[in-house]
Write a protein that binds this DNA or RNA. Structure first.
Lengths: 249, 249
DNA sequence: GGCACGCGTGCCATATTGTGGAACGCCATG
DNA sequence: CATGGCGTTCCACAATATGGCACGCGTGCC
C-alpha cells in the first residue's frame, strides 16, 4: 500500500539472504529495478547494520549481524512461544518423541520456532529457523487446511515441488488431502518431504479460526506404528487446542 | 544519508524486538515521532511479514517469522562463518573450553555468531544472537583495539556502563587498555561484565586491518590459571590469524 | 452518569524524499 | 586499442512519505 521504499528494501534484504554473497548487478536483474535504486537501498541497509559488504573493492553483499540481534526476540518474546512451551513438553513426555512448533511464512513455508527433543538415540532433527515446504509436510498441511480456499488455490497455483514418490504435486490431490486433514483435525506425513521421517501435526488457531502455527510430532518411520495413529492424532490435536486456549486473544 | 523511511522502519523493527509486545503509543514516545508515522510503518512491516499484530483489537506488535527465515543465511551463508568453523573446532579440541565467534554491531555491541562447546559440566553459556558490551568484554576489546582512534573516541564518549568493580568505565583507562591489547595481540577479561567468567579474545582482521570479528575462549574462573595465559593467548591469536587467512578477501 | 483522557485509526495538502536515467571510472576481455 | 560489463555517482523531477488534525472507542476519574 504504502512505504514503497520500505517494502522494496525488505525484499532486497530477503533476496540478499537467499543469494548471498550477491552483487548489485545480480540484484538488478532479479528485480528488474534500476541499478541506482538497488545500490542506494543496499547502502542504506548497510548503514543500518542489516547488510555488510564482504570484500573491499568488488562488492558482494551479505546479511549483517543485526538480524541475529533481533532473532532471539522473534522466538522467546513471542506470546505464542510462551503459550506453547509447557504443552509441548507434556506432549514430549507422553510420547518421548520430538515435538516441533512451526509458523507459516509466505515466502519460506513453515519455519521451526521451537523444539522439544525426545531422548531416543535415533531421532529426527530440524533446527530452529529451518524452513520446510507447505505442501509436503504435516505442519504445512495442518495450516493450509484451515486457510480460506482462495488462499490455498493461489498457493497451489504455484509450483508444487516433488521431493520423492509420496509428495503431493497435483493441486487437486492437495485440496482433497487438505479436506481430509480438516475433517480429521490433524495431518499425517510419511516420506513426502524427508525420507524415513513421519510427522503428525495439528494447527493452532486464533479466535477467528485463522491458523497461527502448527504443533507436530516427528519421528523416524522405524518407530511409527500405524495402529497408534488415532492415539497420536488425538494427543497432538489436544496439545494444539491447549496452546490455542493458553494463547492471549 | 538517504532513505530516511527505510532507516526509521528498521529502527522501529529493532525497537519492537526489544520491547515486544509493544503498542503504537509506546513506540511514539520512544522515538518522539508522530503517531501516524509510526503506525504506517508498523502496518508496512506487517504487510511485509516482518512484524505481526498479536491480538485482534488492542493491537500489540511482535516480531514476525520472517526474521527467522533470514537467519540461516546470516550464519551459514556467511563466508566468515565458513572460514571460522574449523579453526574454532580445533581450538576447542586443543583446550576443551567453549569458543565463541562474535561480530561487532554499533548498536548492540558484540553479537555471538557461532559457538563451539567444551564438554565440562561447568561451562559458560552465551547463546547465538546474544549481545554484550564492547567496553566490558574481551571480544569487544579485541575489536576496539584495531579500530581507528577517532572511532574509539566517539565510542568512549558515550556512557561506559559498569557491571562490577572490574569494568573499565573511564575513557582514558579504556584507551590505555586497548593499546596493551593491540601490542599483545589478544585481550583478557576477568569479571568485567559477567562475574566468574574469564575470556581471552583475538581479532579477525580483513586485508586492510579492519576488525571483522573476534574469536574468544570463555571459561569459568575456577578453571582459569594465570600461568597459562601466554599459552592461551597465543593459541587464540593463532586461531584468529588462521580464520583471517581462510577468509576470502 | 458524565467528563476527560489515552488509545488506535483514517484522512489529506504539503514538500520532503526517493527515483531512475544518464554518465563516469575501472577492469578484464576480444 | 576498442568493447562490454561492472560498481558507483549525480541531479532535476515528481512521486512519495510526512505529520498535523480529527474521529471513535474504551477507561477511569470525578
Amino acid at each position: 500500500m504504502e512505504m514503497k521504499s520500505v517494502t522494496r528494501s525488505l525484499r532486497i534484504l530477503e533476496a540478499v539472504a537467499r543469494h548471498q554473497p550477491v552483487t548489485v548487478g545480480e540484484l538488478t536483474k532479479l528485480f528488474g529495478l534500476p541499478k541506482s535504486t538497488v545500490q542506494r537501498t543496499l547502502l542504506t541497509l548497510n548503514e543500518a547494520g542489516w547488510l555488510r559488504a564482504n570484500r573491499k573493492d568488488t562488492t558482494r553483499w551479505e546479511v549483517g549481524a543485526r538480524v541475529l540481534a533481533v532473532r532471539p526476540a522473534a522466538l522467546q518474546g513471542s506470546s505464542l512461544y510462551a503459550a506453547a512451551r509447557d504443552p509441548m513438553i507434556r506432549l514430549r513426555d507422553a510420547l518421548n518423541e520430538t515435538i516441533h512448533l512451526s509458523v507459516p511464512d509466505a515466502l519460506q513455508g513453515m519455519i521451526v520456532v521451537d523444539r522439544v527433543d525426545c531422548d531416543h538415540a535415533v531421532r529426527t532433527f530440524h533446527a530452529i529457523g529451518d524452513a520446510s515446504p507447505l505442501h509436503a509436510t504435516a505442519a504445512g498441511h495442518a495450516v493450509l487446511a484451515h486457510l480460506p480456499a482462495s488462499d490455498v488455490d493461489e498457493f497451489a497455483a504455484g509450483i508444487l515441488e516433488g521431493y520423492g514418490e509420496e509428495t503431493i504435486t497435483d493441486p487437486g490431490e492437495l485440496r482433497a488431502e487438505l479436506r481430509r486433514v480438516k475433517d480429521r483435525g490433524y495431518a499425517v506425513n510419511h516420506n513426502q518431504y524427508l525420507q524415513g521421517v513421519c510427522a503428525i501435526a495439528a494447527p493452532v488457531l486464533d479466535g477467528d479460526g485463522v491458523p497461527l502455527a502448527a504443533v507436530a510430532v516427528s519421528l523416524p518411520d522405524s518407530r511409527f506404528d500405524v495402529g497408534r495413529l488415532p492415539e497420536l492424532g488425538r494427543l497432538v490435536t489436544d496439545t494444539a487446542a491447549e496452546i490455542t486456549a493458553r494463547h492471549p486473544r
